[in-house]
Design a protein around this nucleic acid. Sequence first.
DNA 1: GTAGAAACTAACAATTTTGTTCGTTATTGT
DNA 2: ACAATAACGAACAAAATTGTTAGTTTCTAC
Lengths: 128, 128
Amino acid sequence: MRKENSTNVLNQQFLFQVCELNSAIAMIGGRWKSQIVYSIYEGNNRFHLLKKELTNISEQVLGRQLKELETHAIIIKKEIPGSIPQGIEYTLTNKGLELIPILKLLCDWGKTFADGKQITAKLPALCV
Amino acid sequence: MRKENSTNVLNQQFLFQVCELNSAIAMIGGRWKSQIVYSIYEGNNRFHLLKKELTNISEQVLGRQLKELETHAIIIKKEIPGSIPQGIEYTLTNKGLELIPILKLLCDWGKTFADGKQITAKLPALCV
DNA sequence: GTAGAAACTAACAATTTTGTTCGTTATTGT
DNA sequence: ACAATAACGAACAAAATTGTTAGTTTCTAC
């Protein structure tokens, strides 16, 4: 539970006002979140599939993260009528889908500069 | 301080192995971080300029966030020889610079879908 | 030569996030 | 009929992040 008037909350609200960048980061910044979004995109759209893919996650944590993603309208939970067993499926909304290319860019960025590779202090001319 | 062998740390390491996306998110996901990177990019490259721009931040928190960004080689701290007063300046590395277009995309994404605008469950054909 | 700003660091406290334990409902395979 | 799996929710505990208090050093303006 958040505390309504803590400095922490007020600072977050301040950042939200400065730029939507900060609310975007707040939505996808949590543990597991982006990976869940990406996994759903790749077809792991059922609770048990996600659980299997994210080996170390607990069911409770997974459920919580899914609900938060749903709250932010990045994913949607649906009942699939004629499926066995049962049938609850998670799908990306268009909001979630449009996040995917950005996550891909972030991934590439991470790969490019992993382990301190490629990093220079001096800026190559074309960057300025 | 992190606890070396907590489940929390192990889960984070697991995610780091799954995809660099997760380490990328870990680097920029913290409070103030992306906003600081963006502000430096916009020219607020001195401690006091950042402090002024991010009205509610405390000097101690700002210092800490800057150091973490430096640790991740996103920014670099430099002494400027002939400047008054004193002269310490923060600059983006090439790693930091290449982050900027991604942050812009995230910002646009945030704006587009702010307050539940534009969100649909059904996917427009061109997205699939 | 004293006061004040710039640019911090360390230690501690508040708050938040993450993970755990226990329990639920509904279905399915044997 | 009984165990197992899917898909969770609530309450609590552990851990991590964020913010605060107090203090440092170096310069600079008066």
